[in-house]
Computed example of a mutant assay.
Amino acid sequence: MKPKEQIGAYQMSFLLFTFMTGSSIVNIPGPLIAYASQGAWISLLLALAAGMAVLACVLVLHRKYPSQSFIEVSRAALGRWPTVLIAIPFIWFQFHMASGIVLDIGLFMKSTLLRQTPLAIFTLSIFVVVALTVRSGLETMSRMFVMPMILVIAFVFLVVLLLAGDYDVTSLQPIMPNGVKPVLLGAYFAYGFPYVELVLFSMLLPYVRSQEHHLLAKGMYAALLFNGFCLLCVTLCTMVVLGPMASELKYSMFVVSQTVDMMEVIQRIESVMGFSLIANSFMKASITVFVLKETFSKLFSFREGKLLVFPLTMACFLFSMLFISKGEARWVNAVTVLHPLVATVCYLLPLLIVTIAASIRKKLA
């Protein structure tokens, strides 16, 4: 059944760009360079290619069942109980993602700007705003995210341009100083964060107006390509500005923005990059919680899914506090090492199973 709320194909594509760019535009360069060194840009291109393949799978499923979400297609193709088994890891990782995105905002604020403020204050405040945003609906979200996202991209490219005189292109050589393996490890990291996460849009595509389905694939691929371009720009900028130090810094683009100094007039614009991280992460967290609400609603046939928003958001907050209580080092390890593998098991594998089962059932029907 088509949801009552409907948005355009290009609005959905913009939501995909917002979701994929999200916190990754600030968080990806440092860890990616640590894995692949000067070959980080190659890793990013390989991960983008993998993301294109995942998106193709999502669009194939939508093309076959345009009015049904991933959970609804799974129930029709596999039955009720197999769908529940598939949904358990699918839902668990959505909790993990939403908690991690907001937790990252809190850790950033606590480590760079407001060091004495308790972490729980940041995370709870963001989760409250996320819950209110999700309750407003997908149509409202698709409209309200436009201006913040445009400002974020403008700020990021402003920093990139202002630093053009400080670029040292020799930092890009040699391209693969340690062979192919580090480049593949970097691609593995970037594939897991953020590209495999776009599987969540299999829950949102039924919101696209039926008369605009023919525009969806073009818009979604364009959004993903532009996301890859933005990540490639900030990664290269980080490499040519910071050189070997780039791999040692967590929020490397934030540090890059601190180096901007033009005639003692344009200085200390790292707050712009801080705004970019907070705004992007907030928007990505809102989309993730919306998908979490949709998954619960479709799985348990709730008619009033908005009633689930605040309980689910509070559960995400408690999950984030439980996770960070075990230490920040464990959190960093989970994001950089385990995240791609777990995302593949929880997101990509269920998508492939349902797509194959639905295609077989469609042919036999």
Rank of each mutant, 00 (worst) to 15 (best):
P244F: 12
A246P: 07
S301P: 01
V240Q: 15
K306N: 01
L299R: 06
S281R: 01
M263H: 08
M263I: 10
A285N: 03
M273K: 00
F282N: 01
S247G: 15
S281F: 00
S252Q: 07
S247P: 07
T259I: 10
V240F: 15
A223V: 09
F290E: 03
V240I: 15
A222R: 06
F290L: 11
E248P: 04
F275C: 05
S257W: 09
K306C: 00
F254W: 14
I287M: 09
L277I: 07
S257L: 10
M283I: 08
T259Q: 12
F300I: 07
L224M: 13
E294N: 10
M283G: 03
L292K: 03
F300P: 08
K306Y: 00
A223Q: 10
F275T: 08
E294M: 08
S252W: 04
I278M: 12
I266S: 04
M263T: 10
I287F: 03
G228R: 12
L292W: 02
V260Q: 10
L225S: 09
V291S: 10
T288N: 11
A285P: 00
M262G: 05
S281N: 07
F226V: 11
K306I: 00
S271P: 08
L232Y: 15
V240M: 15
V289L: 08
P244W: 13
V241Y: 14
S276T: 11
E264K: 11
S286L: 01
F302Q: 03
L231C: 13
S247K: 15
I278H: 02
L225P: 04
V272M: 12
S297E: 05
V265G: 08
G243P: 15
I266N: 05
F296T: 02
L236G: 15
A223P: 09
K293C: 06
S297D: 01
P244H: 14
S271N: 09
M273W: 00
F282T: 03
C230Q: 12
V234H: 03
G243A: 14
M262L: 15
K298Y: 09
F275Q: 07
K298S: 10
L299C: 06
L225D: 03
V255H: 08
F254M: 08
I269N: 08
V255Y: 09
E248T: 12
S257A: 15
L231F: 02
T288H: 05
L232I: 13
Q267M: 12
S276V: 09
L231P: 11
C233W: 14
Q258I: 03
G274W: 02
L292E: 03
F275G: 09
V289A: 01
V272W: 12
I287Y: 00
T238K: 10
S271C: 07
V291D: 02
E270D: 13
F290Q: 02
F302I: 04
M263P: 02
E264N: 13
S297H: 01
L236M: 15
G228W: 11
T295N: 11
T235N: 15
L249V: 13
G228A: 12
D261Q: 11
L277G: 07
E304R: 02
L249C: 06
R268W: 07
E264C: 03
Q267G: 07
P244A: 13
S271H: 06
S271L: 08
K298Q: 14
Q258R: 11
I287R: 02
L249Y: 11
D261T: 08
I269M: 10
V241H: 14
V289K: 00
A223M: 06
T288F: 03
V234C: 02
K306Q: 00
S247I: 11
S247V: 12
